[in-house]
Design a protein around this nucleic acid. Sequence first.
DNA 1: GTGCATTCAATGCAAGCGCAAATAATGCGT
DNA 2: ACGCATTATTTGCGCTTGCATTGAATGCAC
Lengths: 129, 129
Amino acid sequence: MSKAPVASPLVAEWRQLLERHAAVSCALEKALQDRHGIGLSEFETLDRVVDANCGKYRMADLAHDIHLSQSALSRAITRLEKDGLVERSACENDRRSVFVCLTERGREVYDAALPTHRAVLAGSWDPAD
Amino acid sequence: MSKAPVASPLVAEWRQLLERHAAVSCALEKALQDRHGIGLSEFETLDRVVDANCGKYRMADLAHDIHLSQSALSRAITRLEKDGLVERSACENDRRSVFVCLTERGREVYDAALPTHRAVLAGSWDPAD
DNA sequence: GTGCATTCAATGCAAGCGCAAATAATGCGT
DNA sequence: ACGCATTATTTGCGCTTGCATTGAATGCAC
């Protein structure tokens, strides 16, 4: 039996995107968790903070950039802070804002996790490793 | 200030995919919930069951096709069944398996939700509607 | 037929998420 | 200076998810 062709090319495209997203994000999650003890959200957070100008990043900007709600980011930062990978620091100019900045340990974990992340993206990840 | 170029084109591609996935799935979730009272997982489930040969679909196959864990699918089906959109039926040949099939009401809700789904994919969704 | 590994689905459980409300700081109009 | 709308973050809450376990059904070896 052959499946009926999908109604619209848009739907086919969307399903393809879902497929790829599920496969890659699931593989990333597992690889990062197994080898470095951090989740995907945590890695994405570190990844952005590293790119930041002076290692500082406003909460709201960070939440927007990694497509996470403010509350989810707040808790992700709490987890990272509890692990000592990141620190919250107040903004002098606007005390409502909170800056997130990398600790030394955070930098180390990030540097260690980066190759894993890139390897999974390159598709060279062996799940039986 | 200009951001430093991303290390690898793979990373740029991945970030783009994340961006698109977040935008579309979030919009779908909200539109389907607001207008039809079902979540994205529920719609995807109906969408696959409709395409099935005789309206029947094995649990495990369904879970695989919509990239959901067995447990998550089991609960999604429980929700759909509670709403009367879907029914579980035993497989005669292998009593371990469970078939999922659409009810009349499920067909109606699906037909109603389909245009919404397609509209969001087409990017013609107005969030202020 | 009995035993045992395998397969399929459901359930206990902990974790992460988004929404909405609460809290805190800012800035503008008067 | 006072009140009030706005902005930035955190917290309470319910929901969905995945992992691991459980329970049921199957099939193969003997």
